[in-house]
């Protein structure tokens, strides 16, 4: 008989969702890619409990939930340090943790980063849409009913035989600073911005505003002297695109971004820096720099 472990949401926190690596290949139909914002942290959490990299995880943003666990299982938390606790005692991150029935998982103070990832060993009983469990940003359509939570929601996981404990070596654990340096390559409309505007953009730091979310980060500054004669004819946008609105406000598109847009695309964040951008929280400082495509490619090497 298959055993299951259930996770009962006593408090849901600010934003707790099921995420995996998202749904790639449906952009032509207007479906955002979605998926975990910090993909490396999500995959690492799954590795620590012996799950495949695309297994679902809980993405926990800033204020964590309170979850009562019924049944035994192995869990791991990576990403932001939101002071995870089991039964009120500090829970170690980046290692396999055995939980048993009636354990209560909760979170406390935000120590660093923005998003924590909770992996649970086993097969999650979560309805998929277009091949992915990731919570859809188009919430009202009810596409992913099991991927968003309310008080009283229950997540069920079919447990597997436990694995020997895994611990992520300290030297590869990510460090989330409140100062984030992000590299970009020139975007499709880069040439439409004057040298003065580009100079202004890259010579200062930014904070993300509180209305930022998984669709995009709004930055707290306007580009000087920006008077676009018109919008572009709607064209593709991808996670990492920096678009400048007609009012001059830069927006970095993130995982749940729309697939098309009409604003000028100044630059794109390089793939290697998207995960750390996912850990920026409102109030943190971001600096941008421009790199070549070749340098962006080299950034993949560990």
């Amino acid at each position: 008989m298959t055993k299951t472990t259930t996770f009962h949401f006593k408090k849901i926190g600010l934003l707790t969702q099921v995420q995996d690596m998202g749904r790639i290949g449906y952009q032509a139909f207007g479906v955002p890619v979605g998926g975990a914002m910090d993909k490396a942290s999500a995959q690492t959490a799954n590795w620590i409990v012996g799950n495949p990299p695309n297994n679902p995880v809980l993405e926990i943003t800033l204020l964590g939930p309170q979850i009562e666990i019924k049944g035994n299982g192995q869990i791991a938390i990576t990403g932001a340090d939101l002071s995870p606790q089991i039964d009120g005692k500090s829970m170690p991150m980046f290692e396999t943790v055995q939980v048993s029935s009636t354990s209560v998982l909760s979170f406390g103070k935000i120590k660093n980063g923005c998003r924590a990832y909770l992996a649970i060993r086993g097969d999650w009983i979560v309805k998929k849409w277009l091949g992915s469990c990731s919570a859809s940003s188009n919430n009202s359509a009810g596409l992913t009913p099991d991927s968003n939570f309310q008080k009283g929601s229950i997540l069920t996981v079919k447990t597997k035989l436990p694995i020997p404990k895994r611990t992520l070596p300290a030297e590869v654990c990510p460090v989330h600073s409140d100062l984030c340096k992000v590299r970009m390559v020139e975007g499709p409309e880069f040439e439409k911005f004057s040298a003065r505007m580009v100079g202004f953009f890259f010579s200062r730091s930014y904070k993300v505003t509180p209305d930022s979310n998984r669709m995009g980060y709004r930055l707290n500054a306007e580009v000087v002297d920006f008077k676009p004669d018109r919008e572009i004819i709607s064209s593709a946008t991808i996670p990492g695109t920096i678009q400048i609105t007609n009012a001059g406000q830069p927006i970095i598109l993130m995982a749940d971004a729309q697939t098309t847009g009409g604003y000028l695309r100044l630059a794109n964040v390089i793939s290697a820096d998207m995960d750390k951008l996912a850990q920026v929280k409102p109030g943190d400082e971001i600096w941008f720099s421009l790199v070549s495509l070749e340098e962006a490619g080299l950034a993949f090497s560990p």
Binding site: I24, G25, Q27, A28, V33, I233, S234, S235, A236, I238, T259, T260, S271, L293, A296, G297, F300
Partner: peptide, 22 residues
């Protein structure tokens, strides 16, 4: 190739940068 986003008069095509360059 990883994805295709056709629009009015443009087409974005994704690729795996670990396998091929621009």
């Amino acid at each position: 190739a990883t994805f295709i986003t056709p629009a009015y008069c443009s087409l974005a095509v994704g690729y795996d940068p670990l396998k091929i360059g621009f």
